[in-house]
């Protein structure tokens, strides 16, 4: 074939170019000195570290541009360590690059595939081994072994059963009951309606007996935000309106999306925003989701006042608080 396409050919490895240190003893000696200097610098770094550890007090701060106010002890330790380690590395690499042989070496590769003969032998060995065990000829052994192995997997799973209790009703209930007083967090002071001005927000928790300990588990379910608006600003149905008291409305502070604390309240727009994933709830419309990934409003806590004029819960939350779970039905 005369018109066969001719490809461009591999010119082969280019000729080796020697470094200065290979041919010039002066350059080699200079490189050696440079490597040694780096190692000495490293040693100095260690000296800085030891000195800082032993002699620099931990409460000395001084100003460095860019870094700002910096702790001398911490900076001395860190920089000493950094210099000590970095210079060892730089020295080793400089040594390798200037003084160790730099002629490229060619090694051959071989295909991983074995000779056909060896492969056939290998397959034969496996087959012979399997035949010798006779698993195929003894279905009874095969099946009972399979069943036994399968069943034995139950034990580790079962033994992990005590990792935790079953959820029971815990995801659906909180500490709020009819008549539970709302107390400030922090401070544990009961609140009267007049403690909250229009536009104010308060974080509250259910009142506990003096000396009783409040667990994080409880806070994770019980946290409530109180917000006071002018009653005419609400856009609620009659039932929801009856859950408010003189413009004070109470919502679960635990986000209905993934359980973060819905901590940001915008007074102008009357929106609550969760800082984790930006679900936004409209306070005037019973915490309806107006933006973001949450699919449900924040549960509302019906409130009123007790005989002494303190804010209390009329009833528990209208639905389970916090993120969704399989068994929640609303």
């Amino acid at each position: 074939m005369s018109n066969e396409i001719e490809l461009i050919k591999d010119p082969g490895l280019p000729a080796h170019v020697h470094r200065r240190a290979d041919t010039d003893p002066k350059a080699a000696a200079r490189a050696e000195r440079q490597v040694a200097t780096l190692f000495i610098l490293s040693a100095l770094g260690t000296v800085v570290l030891v000195y800082s550890y032993l002699f620099v007090d931990e409460d000395i701060f001084f100003f460095i541009p860019v870094l700002g106010n910096t702790n001398a002890h911490q900076l001395g330790l860190g920089m000493g360590m950094a210099i000590a380690l970095f210079c060892i590395g730089a020295g080793l690499i400089h040594w390798a690059k200037t003084l160790m042989p730099d002629e490229e070496v060619i090694a051959q590769r071989h295909e991983f595939k074995s000779e056909d003969e060896d492969r056939e032998d290998f397959v034969k060995t496996v087959k012979a081994g399997a035949a010798a065990a006779g698993l195929g000829r003894r279905p009874l052994i095969k099946r009972t072994l399979g069943a036994a192995l399968g069943l034995s997997a139950i034990s580790p799973v079962l033994l992990l059963g005590d990792l935790g209790p079953l959820p029971g009703n815990q995801l659906k209930t909180t500490s709020w009951k009819k008549g539970t007083r709302l107390v400030t967090d922090p401070g544990d002071r009961p609140l009267r309606p007049q403690d909250l001005e229009v536009g104010a927000v308060a974080q509250t928790l259910p009142e506990i007996a003096p000396g009783e300990h409040r667990s994080l588990n409880d806070i994770g379910k019980d946290a409530v935000l109180l917000i006071r608006l002018r009653p005419e600003e609400f856009n609620l149905d009659a039932e929801r309106l009856s859950w408010t008291y003189e413009g004070i409305i109470a919502f679960s502070k635990i986000c209905s999306h993934m359980g973060c604390a819905v901590a940001l309240y915008e007074q102008q727009t009357k929106h609550l925003l969760c800082p984790c994933h930006q679900s936004t709830f409209d306070v005037t419309r019973a915490a309806k989701v107006i933006f973001g990934p949450s699919a449900r409003p924040l549960p509302q806590l019906p409130i009123t006042i007790d005989a002494e004029g303190y804010l209390v819960a009329q009833a528990p939350f209208n639905e389970p608080v916090g993120p969704s779970f399989w068994e929640r039905s609303t």
Binding site: L67, T70, Q74, L75, L77, G78, M79, M81, A82, I83, A84, L85, F86, C87, I88, G89, A90, G91, L92, I93, W95, A96
Partner: peptide, 16 residues
């Protein structure tokens, strides 16, 4: 050498 360089740079970051 490169191990020491990586460690050195990490220590530098940890320091500043």
């Amino acid at each position: 050498g490169f191990f020491f360089i990586v460690f050195g740079v990490t220590a530098f970051l940890g320091a500043v």
